[in-house]
């Protein structure tokens, strides 16, 4: 009964692709920002903090529109990208990944920052006295200890990316096979009379994917916690 139609498979694949890249691409930057906010004091810190959190409170459509203005073919960044590298992200799945990444970024940074603030600085000092430089200390001590926070951040960001709609449709529109992710496909179906059954099927798929992601994160984070506690 539940074999997926080509349209559903395509939307599911796109959703996972976009969300996967959104999270993977923004993770290093997310860890970097979290570290800066948790460990460093610098002028304008409050401003940076606010900017990072802005997508959390702005309507996604506003974020999408900003992205369109900045990164569209004629945008400041978009035109430079196109002229120098011949890359264009507007109206492609890459653009959708960027939109998702921006929207989900504050959630990721928050989770990692919280976890970083909980790390005992004394352990890092101990590593230093044992001959470990600051860089190596970060990778051998700090990073493993914030793993639960990173995991939480990744899952939150992934879940938020899966449900991304407003910024995506504003920035990269609804292009079948390129930017039509699950929520966008669902929205399109609801606009067509007589497609209630198909829309319901997409709803079920969305629920299953979201639930699976949550379960996986729960199991993973329990394992990581267990490893840290012995």
């Amino acid at each position: 009964m539940f074999t997926l139609t080509d349209l559903e498979l395509e939307a599911l694949y796109l959703s996972l692709l976009v969300s996967g890249w959104a999270v993977a691409g923004s993770l290093p930057l997310g860890i970097g920002c979290a570290w800066l906010l948790a460990r460093r004091d610098f002028p304008g810190k409050t401003l940076v903090d606010g900017l990072i959190h802005l997508p959390l409170v702005l309507p996604p459509v506003v974020v999408g529109y900003f992205l369109l203005v900045l990164m569209g073919r004629r945008g400041v960044i978009g035109s430079a990208l196109y002229d120098w590298f011949g890359i264009s992200v507007a109206f492609t799945w890459k653009g959708a990944a960027i939109a998702s990444a921006v929207i989900a970024f504050p959630l990721m940074v928050r989770a990692i920052r919280l976890s970083l603030e909980g790390v005992d600085r004394g352990l890092e000092q101990a590593a230093r006295t044992l001959g470990c430089g600051p860089f190596a200390t970060f990778f051998t001590v700090t990073l493993p200890l914030v793993m639960p926070g990173i995991l939480t951040g990744v899952i939150l960001a992934f879940a938020r990316s899966l449900s991304e709609f407003g910024a995506t449709i504003t920035f990269v529109s609804n292009i079948p096979g390129e930017t039509r992710t699950l929520p966008i496909a669902l929205y399109a179906l609801t606009q067509v009379p007589g497609e209630d059954a198909a829309a319901l099927r997409l709803c079920v798929i969305s629920v299953v994917v979201a639930f699976a992601a949550l379960m996986a994160s729960e199991i993973l984070s329990r394992r990581v916690q267990a490893r840290l506690k012995g």
């Binding site: 004394g122 352990l123 000092q125 590593a127 006295t129 044992l130 001959g131 430089g133 793993m147 012995g230």
Partner: peptide, 20 residues
Amino acid sequence: VPPEHRRLGYVFQDGRLFPH
């Protein structure tokens, strides 16, 4: 000289073993 190049052993009051 930064601590990692001093080659001194330090035993802290609270142990500070790496939990992971």
